[in-house]
């Protein structure tokens, strides 16, 4: 229980997807113009993470690993398998959202199918693959069960959501300020994210 809690808090603040490892930057920069759409995208990313990470965890440990059902080490197939799972699930989520919430579907537009190529999702799976080999007794980053994978997905998703909503709020306010001409748009956004990342660095001393 204690391990699950510290894994959860760490993945939100210390190992934040955006500020510590820059994952999902493209849609992060493109969609963060207003709070409402960015919240919708954050929820979608969290949801896709929640589904894909446990599935990929099971694939990695039960099918690809040397002691899996085939009895041979198939980890070199992991990139292809992970991305196929992610693309398939995103397609499924897209159909479900279109059927049950057309307004959210329209608001997210092209970014819903693009979640398939959002590095936050693939990055989550690849970090999970690295963390399986860690020892849960000594490292609070270790992922030893499907439950841990689920908690890691939830934490990283919330961390991503937090980061995109915060940036969107800052950019809404910044629309009224005077910025040098060639720094407008992309340039100032990068610098803002840099300053936000510095603020998040103070969490790195957090020991749980």
């Amino acid at each position: 229980m204690e391990h699950a809690f510290s894994l959860f808090v760490r993945s939100i603040f210390v190992d934040n997807m955006i500020f510590a490892s820059f994952l999902g930057m493209c849609s992060y920069l493109a969609v963060s113009k207003n709070v409402k759409t960015s919240f919708g995208l954050g929820v979608a990313v969290t949801f896709v993470l929640l589904v894909t990470l446990p599935v990929n965890y099971l694939l990695q440990t039960k099918v690809l690993a040397a002691d899996g059902i085939f009895g041979i080490d198939l980890t070199y197939l992991s990139f292809i398998l992970f991305i196929a799972v992610i693309a398939g699930i995103v397609q499924l989520v897209e159909m479900v959202v279109e059927r049950f919430s057309p307004s959210l579907y329209n608001a997210l537009g092209i970014f819903l199918p693009l979640i398939a190529v959002n590095c936050a999702i693939m990055g989550g799976s690849l970090f999970m693959q690295q963390r399986i080999s860690m020892d849960p007794a000594t490292s609070s980053q270790a992922i030893g069960s499907v439950g841990d994978a689920f908690i890691y997905a939830l934490g990283s998703g919330i961390g991503w959501l937090l980061a995109i909503v915060a940036l969107a709020a800052i950019r809404e306010k910044m629309a009224y300020s005077v910025v040098p001409k060639s720094l407008q748009g992309l340039g100032i956004t990068f610098i803002t994210v840099g300053l936000m990342a510095m603020a998040f660095m103070c969490f790195s001393g957090l020991s749980l």
Partner: peptide, 12 residues
């Protein structure tokens, strides 16, 4: 990591 953002911002 934070400085990477700021340097890239300056390059832009």
């Amino acid at each position: 990591p934070a400085m990477a953002m700021i340097i890239l911002g300056c390059v832009v």
